[in-house]
Write a protein that binds this DNA or RNA. Structure first.
Length: 434
DNA sequence: TCTGGGGTCCTAGGACCC
DNA sequence: TCTGGGGTCCTAGGACCC
């Protein structure tokens, strides 16, 4: 038999706080006249990104199209997303949390963790009371609400904060786990997605409690490392620490855009692809990174994909530098007559952009020039809006299509064959024909 | 849940090398 | 030339998250 569940109340005290309908709440805080009204954000995409609780009460949910939402709720207030303001509120929220402990993890824009372990003496009060003060401070200073969960691990704290929303407060002490976990369905558990839940149900489990009652080795055997971690976290054994250092860099940067209408028009699709490439590179430069690999994928009407990737000879942050290559990749995977639904660009093998490193024989003047052009484009777009200034067709139309030529495109999740082909190009030198 | 956009991490299996 | 065993690195793809 496994070790018993922890019985004392808080061997560690981890708080999870989760902004309630964060974007919509921030809008209501900034525009108090919107309080009590059904507010949604996401106007720019035509799909609801976040719905206030008033809107949710009227049946308006995230992901729904605006036209549908308006049918349900004619007096809906629809706002464009204002990420700058949301980020500002997010920062203030985390600053408030850090007044209580430096051990704060910014998990996403609207949720985070804090480790209060050992702070009862500092504050001369209980963990519950400290967590409540944090929650109240956010409400008092930012005029938005957060739901708070207090428990023994990140995994449990997260379940607790979801248990009551909005403005909920749920503390689950070690001696209450046997009351809490049987009320948590498997699909609520952090880290259990649809596939895992299905698998666990096949083994006769229904709740988080069923899961932690199985031996640890059983969990690990079935679900691997993740399974063991979740098992421990749910039993109150905090195996995943609250990570304070901010995640400063990316492994990949991707941009993906679905068309309003599927199309067979080659120029249309290519134009969208170019726009994605530009967006991806803008983000890349903003984070002072360079890419060594680019992947171009087209999505068909039936949700299958076809893509190609190329390793760059030299890491770059200059959009123009890869445009001829993008053209070539596109030409290789394009299929006449196919109906396309989206373009996806992924920049990978990112590395920090620390100054320039030229290799022998590289055209230093040209590279400098392209880097400067990118800088100017960013500055203009920063000031006048994204894509105000973008690349003209001449920059990428210079190279002739190279369709055919033994191209072997890959198809992900090919429903017919089930085989995966991936074409890989190693480009010895960037084709630059500006 | 009929499908929006942007990420991360883990793992099995192949390539390659003693 | 056939047989082992073991280590490392890399990659594709699955699964999950907000």
């Amino acid at each position: 038999m496994e070790a018993p569940l922890i019985l004392h109340s808080y061997p560690r005290a981890i708080v999870h706080f989760d902004g309630d309908a964060f974007f919509a709440s921030v809008e209501q805080a900034v525009h108090p006249e919107l309080k009590g009204r059904p507010v949604v954000t996401g106007q720019e995409r035509g799909i609801i990104a976040c719905a206030s609780y008033e809107a949710k009460a009227r049946g308006v949910a995230r992901g729904v199209t605006l036209s549908e939402a308006r049918k349900k709720c004619p007096d809906l207030v629809v706002l464009p997303s204002d990420y700058e303001t949301y980020s500002l509120y997010s920062k203030r929220m985390f600053d408030i949390m850090r007044r209580y402990t430096p051990v704060v993890e910014e998990y996403s824009i609207d949720e985070g963790f804090a480790d209060l372990s050992g702070l009862r003496r500092v504050f001369h009060t209980s963990y519950k009371e400290i967590a409540r003060r944090m929650q109240q401070a956010v409400r008092a200073e930012l005029d938005i609400t957060v739901s708070v969960g207090l428990s023994l691990s990140r995994g449990l704290a997260k379940l607790a904060s979801k248990f009551r929303k909005p403005a909920g407060f749920t503390a689950v002490a070690g001696n209450h786990l046997h009351l809490f976990l049987p009320r948590i369905a498997l699909e609520k558990v952090w880290g259990f997605g649809p596939n895992t839940v299905q698998l666990l149900k096949k083994h006769g489990l229904q709740t988080a409690w069923d899961y932690v009652r199985r031996p640890e080795v059983w969990a690990e055997h079935l679900l691997g490392k993740i399974g063991r971690e979740i098992w421990n976290e749910l039993r109150g054994n905090a195996v995943v620490p609250v990570a304070t250092e901010e995640k400063s860099t990316y492994y990949t940067i991707s941009k993906c855009k679905t068309f309003a209408e599927p199309t067979r028009d080659r120029d249309q699709v290519f134009a969208r692809l170019v726009r994605n490439v530009e967006s991806a590179f803008i983000k890349l430069r903003r984070h002072k990174l360079r890419a060594r690999e680019i992947q171009v994928t087209l999505r068909f009407q039936d949700f299958t994909y076809e893509g190609i990737e190329a390793r760059l000879h030299r890491p770059t942050g200059a959009t123009q530098e890869v445009m001829p290559l993008v053209r070539e990749l596109f030409d290789r995977i394009w299929r006449d007559g196919a109906e396309y639904r989206a373009t996806i660009v992924v920049l990978a093998r990112l590395e920090p952009d620390r100054g320039e490193q030229y290799e022998l024989f590289e055209d230093r003047v040209r590279i400098d020039k392209m880097t400067r052009i990118s800088g100017v484009i960013d500055a203009v777009n920063e000031r006048y809006g994204k894509h105000t200034l973008s690349l003209g067709p001449s920059l990428f139309l210079g190279r002739r299509p190279t369709t055919g030529r033994g191209a072997l495109p890959w198809r992900k999740r090919d429903l017919l064959g089930g085989e995966t082909f991936r074409q890989r190009l190693r480009i010895p030198r960037l084709g630059m024909q500006v």
